[in-house]
Each structure stands twice: as structure tokens, then as C-alpha cells.
Nucleic acid binder design. Structure first.
Lengths: 105, 105
DNA sequence: GGCCCTCATGCCTTGACGGTTATATAACTC
DNA sequence: GAGTTATATAACCGTCAAGGCATGAGGGCC
């Protein structure tokens, strides 16, 4: 899960948060972030190689959109930690442990 | 949510994963990680200032344990992204549309 | 072909970070 | 008190990454 390191970077998290709403071209992201275009392209490269985003070439533009995989992994990693705030019932704890080890839902 | 950047670091994620099972002292973590004690203390400082862990002084030792807050925040941040894989049909459609995607360097 | 637009890449600088060793601080033991 | 244990901090170093500018590579448009 190196995607976490990719998402952790503040600028890249801004990109990800923007792409969550809709797919964007590079120039759109540049205007959103107020940074130079090469910097944005570099961040997009990191996100792309981490599997967080994919690019679709359309004319001269490249439309970037999110890929669900890394977010699913992050969600799976986070699952056992949910015990910390759902520990109201010991029953529920064991239930969550089972469901996370079995992987499903 | 700078806690994400704190957790993203590989060594700190090992620490967090260890603390998820049970609270540990610094020396315990040092033996687990096979790193120098100052390095571990430094990582613990980062995690502490990010609110991910708290330290309880007990004699000369300091027992570190996880704090649920940041994980709840991360869970909340991740929530809107869950739509990406709960809407399988729309995702599959977009995937099929993406067959002409140009990937890689 | 020539030009412009869109994006990627290379090069460079700077600042931050992870790791080390050495040292300081605090508390227990004798 | 001295000595030991447990942890934090300081000082230092090597590496890496984020940002800038300049340039290269494709793909429309005239």
C-alpha cells in the first residue's frame, strides 16, 4: 500500500479531493491548485504509478480520474482500527474481527 | 488531518500496527522494529504531535497507545470515496470506456 | 509545412526527513 | 549519594522529494 504515501502529500490530496467530484484535465487541475503545470504533472505521475489515478488521452488533453483500488485497500487497512470507536459492545468487536479476517461485504 | 502524513511513513505504520494490538513501551517497540531507540522516539514524537498516540508515564517507562480520533477522521475522509466501489455498474461502464487509455511512462 | 495548444520530462536548487551517535533528563535501586 | 535503566533531545549526515524553469513530444488547426 504505497498509495497511502502518495495520497498523504497535501498537494496530491487536493488533487484527489478534486478528482473525487469529477474527472479533470491537467490544465484544469493547474488552475485549481495555482501551481506550475510541471509540478502538477509530476504529482499526477506519482499518483498514476501508485495506481490512484488513470489517464485517458483525449485529443491533446489527458483526462485524469480516480481508481477505486487504493481506496478499497485503505478502507480494508482501516477496518480493524474501527474497533477503537465501536467498542461499545464486545460482541460487535468480535463480529468486526471476523468480517475483516474473512474479507467480504 | 496531518495525521495521515504521519501514518503514511512505513516505519510509523509498523508502529501503529503494533500499537493496535496492545499498548507498548519504547523499548518494546525498539526490539520489534530493530532500529535505534532515538529513531523510534523520534517517530513517536511525530505520532504524538499528530495526535495519533498518547504516552502514559509509568515509572521510567512511557507506555504508548493509540488515540482513536485521527482514525475516525481518516474514516470520515474516506467515506465519500466508498461510493466508487459501491456503485459497481457505473464503475464498470467507465472502465469499458477506458479501454483506449494510454498508461505508463 | 508552420503554429499553437496540452502535457511530459530533464535539470537544478532547496528544504525536509529518516537514520545514526553522543549526550541530557528523569526515575528507580542500592 | 553513585550507578543503572528508560526515554528524550541535540547535532550531524545522506538521501530524497517538491518546486521552479526550460525544453521536448504529440496532436489539432490554419
Amino acid at each position: 500500500m504505497d498509495a497511502l504515501a502518495a495520497i498523504a502529500e497535501p498537494t496530491r490530496r487536493r488533487i484527489v479531493d478534486a478528482l473525487r467530484l469529477r474527472a479533470c484535465t491537467v490544465t484544469e487541475l493547474v488552475s485549481m491548485l495555482g501551481m506550475s503545470q510541471p509540478a502538477v504533472s509530476k504529482h499526477l505521475r506519482v499518483l498514476r504509478e501508485a495506481g490512484v489515478v488513470t489517464a485517458q488521452t483525449r485529443a491533446q488533453q489527458r483526462v485524469y480520474r480516480l481508481e477505486p483500488g487504493p481506496f478499497r485497500e485503505l478502507d480494508a487497512w482501516l477496518a480493524p482500527y474501527r474497533r477503537m470507536w465501536t467498542h461499545h459492545l464486545a460482541e460487535l468487536e468480535r463480529h468486526l474481527d471476523r468480517t475483516t479476517t474473512l474479507e467480504e461485504s
